[in-house]
Simulated assay, not measured.
Amino acid sequence: MSDTVHPVSYEGLRIAPSPGGGWRGLHVVRDLGLLLGGALLFAAARKLVWGTEESLAGAALWATAILPIFVGLILTGVSTSPHAASSRLGRILSSAWTISLLAFVLLRGSGLASVFEDAIYSASEPGAIRYLILSAIYAGVGAGIFALICLAYRSASRRSWVDGLASFFVVFLLFYLAVFVVAF
């Protein structure tokens, strides 16, 4: 009888033992948590910006809430190697977007955002410039926190910095369009 453990496949999900013992592929729970957590954070962010004008019952809201993280997870899943460019970018995009939303909800919900938002609101006219500045701040906070996490785990490389910069611009555009500008 062989000691070899064969991979288990469940509807396209490949779960195989890793050389060190544990199991690879059980990241589904993490990914599902990221998807649901990100969607809830997006809904909370929209509610904090739009107030009573925002209905949490709209299909467009939830489709938009799920889309960025779903695309990130798809990019992660289509790669044949966890070190492939699409896999790295997908993980970074999903993580940076979720961290940015979490920072936004925590800062706005606690009132700490008023420290810098009040200055921006008083210094700029209502319109695009105000929301571009706020989008850059929140995307920068998320990207900065994500960079610190990468440094703490010593996973930062030049490639991940380039991917991080790319994801900053994607998160920036997502904040500007999906959180501040487009009404559902």
Rank of each mutant, 00 (worst) to 15 (best):
E54G: 10
E54D: 11
E54S: 11
E54T: 14
S55D: 10
S55A: 15
S55C: 09
L56V: 06
L56Y: 00
L56N: 02
A57P: 00
G58Q: 08
A59Q: 10
A59I: 04
A59D: 03
A60V: 05
A60M: 09
A60H: 01
A60W: 02
L61Q: 10
L61G: 11
L61C: 07
L61E: 05
L61F: 06
W62G: 14
W62L: 10
W62E: 06
A63D: 01
A63L: 15
A63H: 02
A63C: 13
T64A: 13
T64M: 10
T64E: 03
T64F: 14
A65D: 08
I66E: 03
I66H: 04
I66M: 15
I66Q: 00
I66L: 14
I66F: 13
L67Q: 14
L67E: 12
L67M: 08
L67W: 08
L67T: 15
L67R: 10
P68G: 04
P68H: 12
I69S: 02
I69C: 01
I69G: 06
I69V: 02
I69N: 01
I69P: 02
I69H: 03
F70K: 09
F70D: 15
F70N: 10
V71Q: 08
V71H: 13
V71W: 04
V71S: 13
V71R: 13
V71K: 12
V71N: 07
V71I: 15
G72T: 01
G72L: 12
L73S: 06
L73R: 10
I74Y: 13
I74D: 02
I74P: 15
L75A: 10
L75D: 12
L75V: 14
L75S: 07
T76P: 01
T76A: 09
G77E: 03
G77V: 09
G77Y: 13
V78S: 04
V78Y: 11
V78A: 09
V78M: 07
S79G: 15
T80Q: 11
T80K: 10
S81E: 09
S81T: 06
S81N: 15
P82Y: 06
H83R: 14
H83M: 05
A84S: 13
A84V: 08
A85K: 12
A85T: 13
A85Y: 12
S86D: 09
S86Y: 05
S86R: 00
S86L: 01
S87H: 02
S87L: 01
S87F: 01
S87T: 03
R88P: 00
R88D: 00
R88F: 00
L89Q: 04
L89H: 10
L89W: 04
L89R: 00
L89P: 02
L89S: 06
G90I: 14
G90H: 14
G90L: 04
G90N: 09
G90C: 13
R91D: 01
I92Q: 05
I92R: 13
I92G: 04
I92D: 08
I92Y: 03
L93K: 01
L93A: 10
S94H: 03
S94T: 05
S94Y: 02
S95A: 06
S95P: 07
S95Q: 11
S95E: 14
A96F: 07
A96I: 12
W97T: 02
T98P: 11
T98G: 00
T98S: 00
I99Y: 09
I99A: 15
I99C: 09
I99F: 14
S100R: 08
S100F: 08
L101F: 08
L101V: 04
L102R: 02
L102V: 06
L102T: 05
